[in-house]
């Protein structure tokens, strides 16, 4: 099983653990991640304004790269996944955007949304299978109580992301069960961490992160996992509660359970 892999900027800098453990775990599970060449920053936010074209080009280049390899494009960072998946949907469904992007890029053949964008978690669920993952676990995280924090970008808008039930997702909980731990379900697992507003006003993410973590702790979680570097940052750096749980990327626990850490 080989995927074209798009790591994204943050995974090369602040979120190296997210990337490193994803790679070793994939290898152990028989999945090859072939990093695409010359990828550029996805832009981190999906441009909602319909007349934004230039900000969508780098995502299309990545998509076209995977198309040329004849592979699915695998993403890991929630923001990259969100942007690339939605831009791909635009290329598939919006005639105006598709025409303008292709006019601009002048590719050998027009890109019209052919590439399938897959998140690492979707790969675990649909290609590897959580049952097979469970069987591959060498070091089950027995006794660990883990709250999944989904954030916004993987789930919404559900019609485009088609990732999971946006209000009652199960994929991370199923992942937690597969690595031998106990999932703790929280109400705020799909409520925003405060996002990029952190750059301007830390008070907003602080309020959000405290609320999210307090709930996780009150429901007995010792660990909170995420797939998003910005969520991890807000929860870890911008929260001020005392009894903070461990906050880490899901790939760290995956590697730990597979005996690779």
């Amino acid at each position: 099983m080989t995927y074209s892999y798009y790591p994204g900027c943050t995974l090369k800098t602040k979120a190296k653990e997210l990337d490193r453990y994803a790679r070793v775990s994939a290898e152990a599970l028989g999945v090859t991640l072939a990093e695409i060449e010359d990828w550029q920053c996805c832009g981190a936010v999906y441009p909602l304004a319909l007349d934004e074209i230039a900000t969508k080009l780098s995502a299309v280049r990545a998509l076209d790269s995977a198309k040329k390899e004849g592979r699915e494009l695998l993403t890991l960072c929630s923001a990259c996944h969100h942007v690339i998946k939605r831009v791909n949907n635009d290329m598939l469904t919006n005639d105006d955007i598709r025409m303008k992007v292709n006019n601009y890029l002048k590719l050998d053949t027009d890109y019209v949304g052919e590439t399938n964008v897959v998140h690492y978690l979707e790969m675990l669920r649909d290609a590897v299978g959580f049952d097979n993952l469970k069987a591959a676990v060498k070091n089950p995280l027995k006794g660990r109580k883990i709250a999944a924090y989904y954030g916004c970008l993987l789930l919404r808008p559900a019609k485009v992301m088609q990732f999971d039930n946006p209000e009652n997702p199960t994929i991370l909980e199923d992942f937690i069960k597969a690595i031998g731990a106990t999932p703790v379900i929280t109400g705020y697992r799909n409520e925003c961490c405060g996002g990029y507003v952190a750059l301007e006003d830390k008070a907003i993410p602080q309020k959000r992160a405290n609320m999210i973590l307090e709930e996780a702790v009150s429901k007995g979680a010792d660990t909170v996992i995420t797939a998003c570097p910005l969520c991890l940052y807000n929860l870890e750096t911008n929260s001020t509660i005392d009894n903070k749980p461990t906050i880490c990327y899901f790939t760290e626990l995956l590697a730990e359970a597979l005996g690779l850490k």
Binding site: N165, P166, E167, N168, I185, G187
Partner: peptide, 11 residues
């Protein structure tokens, strides 16, 4: 009510 889980019926 699966599409209205913001109200938490299943949860």
């Amino acid at each position: 009510l699966d599409n209205f889980e913001e109200f938490g019926y299943a949860q």
